[in-house]
Amino acid sequence: MIKVGIIGATGYVGAELLRLLLNHPKVQVFKISSVSFIGEEISSIYKNFINKTNLICENAEEVLSNCDVIFTDLPHGLSEEIAEKALSENKLLIDLGADFRLSSESEYLKWYNKKFDKPDIHKYSVYGLPELNKEKIKKSKLIANPGCYPTSIELALLPLLKNSLIHTSRIICDSKSGTTGSGRSLSLTSHYTEVNENFSPYKIGCHRHLPEIEETLNSISKEKVKITFTPHLLPINRGIISTIYLSPKNKINLIELRKIYLDFYKNEPFINILPLGDIAQIKQVRLSNYCNISLHLNHREDGLIIVSTIDNMIKGAAGQAIQNMNLCLGFEETEGLNLISPSF
């Protein structure tokens, strides 16, 4: 059994990783760490783990020293040193934070107010969107797991950009997420009374996922991509829905467009291109590693609207990280991730 460890196991994403990995048939969760809960059993923090695991939160060094695969779920700026040590010992590290998502140090400084601490190791990192970089992921020991909003938007747009079907300077991404996207630490905006019976945009024009989305889309586009991205907070626990407004270069035939999407994703087990007339919804993907995509025209039939949905905690975070691990270790890509969303 491959020994895996989680550094930052007590955040929402870390706990979701643990939940999924405990059911993975080919790995053993051997060590977990948490700065805030050292010495405490994970089951005392999250009661769903009672009688499922007796893992105790230790320090990060214990995870790094004793595991073959390390997942890091940490605030930005804390994963580079850990990644450097993992690479020096030829271990696989999958980072669910932001430290390796941007290739440009100047862009990282602009958006995260920090330079790279270990600039030399960034050349070894691969952006872990399997539907885009599968072959590179298989050969890498350092994976930058994508952000949740970027995952939903990038998967919706890759076929269009690959085939140069849209004007790349007129992309509007309107995305909504459940409250788990803001993490376990409480802030004013995540208080129940602020979220309940409310629906609000935030970080308009300045969300840190914007440069990640543009960099990834530019890697496949023949023309420079410029997007307008506005995230919103939904009064639900989990899920993301992105509604994307686009200007086609030529008249769009949805039947032909759906064929293009089906062909682009024909070997991708977690992408569902819905039948025409269906609309992607959060409940269809909740608690699964799937991304559902639906294709629509506006009423004048001169504008294209794409709807993309994921579970932000799974395909947008923990599930995609395990998908990347499976690829790196030569497992079936779907191993441990055959999860079907509840029907209600």
Rank of each mutant, 00 (worst) to 15 (best):
T179V: 15
R238K: 11
H207Y: 14
P201Q: 10
Q284W: 04
N196W: 14
C206I: 13
G239L: 05
I273Q: 00
Y290D: 02
N196P: 00
L276D: 02
N198K: 13
E194A: 08
R258T: 05
P248L: 13
C291Y: 00
V195H: 02
H232T: 10
P269D: 10
N289A: 12
L210M: 10
T228H: 12
E268V: 06
I204N: 11
E197L: 12
N198A: 14
E214F: 10
T216N: 01
N272K: 15
I305D: 00
I220Q: 04
I305T: 05
K251Q: 13
I236T: 14
G183P: 06
A280G: 03
T243E: 12
N250F: 13
G303L: 01
P231K: 14
F270G: 06
C173E: 01
E212Y: 05
N298A: 06
L262F: 05
Y192A: 09
P201L: 06
N196L: 12
Y192H: 09
S190E: 01
V195L: 13
I305A: 00
S175E: 08
T230V: 15
I172N: 05
P211H: 13
Y261M: 04
H209L: 03
I236K: 06
L276M: 03
T243V: 14
E256Q: 11
T216C: 03
K251W: 09
S288T: 11
G183N: 04
I306L: 00
N237R: 09
L188S: 08
K203N: 10
G277W: 15
K226S: 13
N198F: 11
D302E: 13
I172A: 04
